[in-house]
Amino acid sequence: MQSPRPIDSPASVPADGAHANPAAIVARNLHKSYGDQTVLRRIGLEIPQGQFVCFLGASGCGKSTLLRLLAGLETPDDGAAPNGVRPAAMGSGGVGSLGADEPSDLRLESPGTEVGGPRLGFVFQQANLLPWRTVYRNIELPLRLQGVTAAQRRAAVTRALAQVGLNERDGEKWPRMLSGGMQMRASLARALVTAPQIMLLDEPFSALDEVLRQRLGEELRQWHQQLGWTTVFVTHHVSEAVFLADRILLFRSLAQAPEAESLVADLPIQFNQPRQAELRESREYVETVIQVTKRLREVQA
């Protein structure tokens, strides 16, 4: 899959209709199964550049799996991988019954994208820091793996530390010496040190307390805007999704619905005020949370 194919109609049309920005992520007719168990069915989505999208759904609905497909950590059933990085040779078992479908496609794009696709940032559910590297050297790792020079690494790590609110002395510590919240900040710094264009986050704040989770959410939303990311955030917290997202994609578990599609709703989220702490106290926010929750209950019923 060297040259990208033209996209006719993604199965799920973006919520805000004729958006101005070109697509950053395009997925069409993706399936993923492990053995007999189908985790994702007929995923189609198009995410324009600069959008903040939340994948929302119960545990086991495949939202994390889709995120990992986008990151290239998993391969869809017919082998399509982001920008054709991997050859289409894996897992032919799952799609047999759906063979008549249109071919699947998965592409990540960005303006001025160089060979190999846009730069990705990925934040894991746990901080996932390497315990044998200091915080500084953890954040530096992606640059080191990419062969960036020492001086450039130094500058980028210093910037990333400041961005997430850690100081130089925190950088010298071992990960085990940091609190859970600070470990997550270090993990965020590691994801943004490469100046990503697309940021993928897999329930990053789920192990943190509510106050910290809210604060990090507020900061994340700011970074998203400042740094011009296209952001995909996986969560099972409705309030978190409503606060963060421009658009929420609702997922359903396929366990009870063997023939259904995984993506069940595409909800635009818009507020008349900025995404700051005060938003949480507003009427429109609370009402949106209630509506989305209702929708989620319907989906899971």
């Binding site: 290239g72 950590l73 894991f124 746990q126 996932n128 044998w132 590297r133 992606p142 793996l145 990419q146």
Partner: peptide, 27 residues
């Protein structure tokens, strides 16, 4: 596994995975 994901995300070479991940893990 999550550590390995981190290296795969950054398209680490086999040697980088050995030196920066496997060796420290084994210590």
């Amino acid at each position: 596994a999550a550590h390995l994901d981190l290296f795969r995300l950054n398209r680490a070479t086999r040697w980088q995975i050995y030196w920066y991940l496997q060796v420290p893990t084994s210590l």
